[in-house]
């Protein structure tokens, strides 16, 4: 049994095999694999006895269920109006400069992916962003530089 098949089976054992189990299973895959691959979706469809297209439809509906490979750290900058007025465009420009990628891309070492997201609910502390599940608020270009350097250093010491 392939690794993906095994993982999906375990998730289905944990969350069940009804239609309502689909979302927790997909979240479980993202927690483990960072994104949901074509192979994983097929296995979910098989386990839950539904069409693969329906799994794809559900997965693409949710912004936080990535269907394309992402880096180890996914940076999501809030794109909504309040954060924009607090200067999210400068934040994105700073991130693009630091990481040498454009919005929507992943660094060549596979460590960072830069995305925009809908409202994070931090309007009073904008601009805001998430790195994986951790929120960062009241961002300035300097603050962003510090955060990225910290993550980079962590990566270096981990290797």
């Amino acid at each position: 049994m392939s690794e993906v098949k095994q993982m999906v089976k375990e998730l289905a054992n944990q969350y069940g095999r009804s239609n309502e189990s689909l979302l927790p299973i997909l979240q479980g895959i993202v927690t483990k694999e960072l994104h949901i691959s074509e192979e994983a979706m097929i296995e979910v469809a098989r386990e839950l006895d539904m069409s693969a297209a329906q799994v794809y439809g559900t997965a693409t509906f949710y912004s936080f269920l990535d269907t394309r490979p992402t880096g180890k750290y996914v940076i999501r900058v809030c794109k909504t109006i309040t954060c924009m007025m607090h200067g999210k465009n400068q934040i994105i420009r700073e991130l693009e400069n630091l990481l040498k990628i454009r919005l929507g891309e992943t660094t060549h070492d596979g460590v960072f992916t830069l995305l925009e997201t809908n409202c994070l609910g931090q309007c009073h502390k904008g601009p805001a962003m998430l790195i994986n599940e951790l929120p960062f608020t009241e961002l300035t270009p300097e603050k962003v530089r510090k955060i990225i350097i910290e993550y980079r250093n962590r990566e270096i010491s981990a290797n």
């Binding site: 069409s51 297209a53 329906q54 794809y56 439809g57 693409t60 509906f61």
Partner: peptide, 10 residues
């Protein structure tokens, strides 16, 4: 009961 088609994205 084929569901070859679906709604994707939002």
């Amino acid at each position: 009961s084929v569901s070859a088609l679906t709604v994707s994205h939002k």
